[in-house]
Write a protein that binds this DNA or RNA. Sequence first.
DNA 1: CGCGAGATTGATTAACATCAATAGGAGTGG
DNA 2: CCACTCCTATTGATGTTAATCAATCTCGCG
Lengths: 236, 236
Amino acid sequence: MPDLFPHCRECKTRYHGKLAGVNDETLELLDMSKTCNLYKKGQRLIQEGTRPLGVYCIKSGKVKVFKLGQQGKEHITAILKDGDLVGYRAMLSDSLYHVSVEALEEVVACHIPREQFLKSFQNDKVLNKRLITDLSKEVISLTNVVTDIAQKPVRERTAATLVLLNSVYARNNPQGEEEMAEINLTREALANMVGTATETLIRVIHDFKEEELIKTNGRKIIIKDLKALQRIGGIY
Amino acid sequence: MPDLFPHCRECKTRYHGKLAGVNDETLELLDMSKTCNLYKKGQRLIQEGTRPLGVYCIKSGKVKVFKLGQQGKEHITAILKDGDLVGYRAMLSDSLYHVSVEALEEVVACHIPREQFLKSFQNDKVLNKRLITDLSKEVISLTNVVTDIAQKPVRERTAATLVLLNSVYARNNPQGEEEMAEINLTREALANMVGTATETLIRVIHDFKEEELIKTNGRKIIIKDLKALQRIGGIY
DNA sequence: CGCGAGATTGATTAACATCAATAGGAGTGG
DNA sequence: CCACTCCTATTGATGTTAATCAATCTCGCG
């Protein structure tokens, strides 16, 4: 049985995640200062409105990143998985967390304390460049999301969301990865990503199923025609 | 008559803009490499889809930052003014411009070429920290925008947009700045910021006028009750 | 084998977009 | 200075989309 909390050197996420390629010294320092934890489904890693004490590196499992809007309705801004880093925006801008992060299933994540992370961010060129690039890209992508949500109808947004989720739920296949992923989220969560009501989301999913663009297995959604969904979602 | 294209040292934006506080050497280098230009209303500084050759520093006038969505409908993501920097996200992430930037009136802006800007970004601690902080904050703020646009009705978004624009159009008063700004945009542009149809925006503006929250002078909008609008817009 | 959360379907309503028509109002050429 | 014209603003009527409300229905699980 593999170690739940291995040394960063042995962590599988080291090769495909946000920390891929950092230098050995950085890895050593991060490892020394980290605290790993097992989170059960529904447990919170980060709570909106609190002060950031560090950064989480997700080792396994999936989390949802969300914000509460009007009447406590969740808006899910991302689903993150192994290798992803979360919480660094708030730290780098010295502000409170503006989102909450919650485990969707059993999750192992390591907490890297603020000071150590900032130090590594200063000293490690690769990490520095990666995060700056990511931040910039995130701004770009969020701008697109804003435009889309403002202008595209639910059907199109749903298609785009499914395409996005397909790559999140795809296995990290070292080889080819043509097999389609099983998107495993509640309808409510999907609706909260698309930005619509649960019932509306269900109707769109229903249509997609009739049009043979997807199939379902229980609540799991498997994409049958990725190209078509990309076309509907306006993804080029 | 003041020089249209002064040395950065003498540029008024030096004290309140994004470049405030950079060290003298940086300023000298930026000045040497910059190219200043006068843009007439409607002229483009940046065109979506092109490759970033540098960064623009706005010396005077206002520009709109926008993206084309479905059927060529504009979505305006920001109104920028003197002291603002634009175009650095694409450069830092090494991607194409994802937005266009167009002069809303007569604008003077200086172009800082890519290499010089990146060099200054590397070498100047203040600039580096400022941009990273700004990027992080921008991600946070865009996340909020996404949630809002997904969940808040037009009336609330309109109120929030007016509050935002009030500070953009406020004079850069060194002293107090209690006088209300004159927001001078076409109704169409306003609608494209809020993310709604022009007619709908006009009706909301009409309501606000009846409720004495704003007054108008031609197309200019002056806020009469900022607190109320903040409340309606859900700004805390 | 019943319980309960999540999924689904149908009916109704509300918000907003679209279409159509009219009215201002700033800039232009005579 | 005036008439003209185009662009923007405004208002009203109508149509669509999607939210809400109200039942079921289904399935994993104790």
